[in-house]
Write a protein that binds this DNA or RNA. Structure first.
Lengths: 127, 127
DNA sequence: ATTTGATTACGAAACAATTCGTAGAACAAT
DNA sequence: ATTGTTCTACGAATTGTTTCGTAATCAAAT
């Protein structure tokens, strides 16, 4: 268990990681433009956040050109896993099943999604 | 849609709500003793937190005796729902299924739990 | 070459959350 | 009634996060 990771990202940092995971490589401006859609905040705020993330080792950046290019260093799955586990412990008293049902209950899920999950469960059962 | 709720609890406040949900009515000391097991912090810290939660309307308290007794005012399911939805949006790009699989993958789930979820899925399918 | 515009760097303000120390009230035990 | 213990109240320090203003740098356009 080499815990290389476990720099916990803040709420805002997660939003940015999110974008980097999806887009791959981004400039500050690109990130900022996406952020702007759902948020009110200035460009230098985004910049600062990404600089801090770099200090913390959450992202890497290429500074060879004037405009720096960032990419996520945190692994998406690991981060998701970590957050989900935390949530199960903190909010669902350790019951993954409860969280699952809660998640499926409201967040109207398509038949395809439901089937995908069923298959997944079958595989799990076999072990 | 009477939004009575939606005072968002902080991380620490959630831990306390958790305990109150499980135990029902608690004194500060009871809460603190449980908290202590997983956390390093003083009694007055817990007290202060619970006082703040009272100000915010997250908990009610009975002050008729010297030692006050607290209980949660936030509804557990609603709070869970809210947090899960937020997580699906923020961290799983809107896919509940992804969260579910992530949740089940690592957090070693018992056969009983898996079966419970399957049944639940069957019910969902029928609609 | 000068202006204009976009970029980074960075300090510091503003805000939020957590932690604790200390004082005083309540009460039980002596 | 005095002492010791447990409790609440509350201010204030500490720590963490987010926000922005300003200066410096660079490059493109005039």
């Amino acid at each position: 268990m080499t815990e290389v990771n476990h720099l916990k990202a803040t709420e805002s940092e997660l939003e940015i990681l999110q974008i980097l995971w999806e887009k791959g490589n981004c400039t500050v401006r690109e990130v900022h433009e996406i952020l702007e859609k759902s948020k009110e905040s200035g460009y230098t705020t985004t910049l600062k956040l990404m600089q801090i993330m770099h200090e913390k080792g959450l992202v890497a950046r290429d500074t060879s050109a004037k405009t720096h290019v960032y990419r996520a260093l945190q692994n998406q799955e690991k981060t998701q896993q970590h957050l989900v586990n935390k949530m199960i412990d903190n909010v669902f008293n350790g019951s993954a099943a409860r969280l699952v049902m809660q998640a499926l209950g409201n967040h109207s899920t398509s038949k395809d999604e439901i089937n995908a999950i069923k298959e997944y469960l079958d595989q799990l059962s076999k072990k």
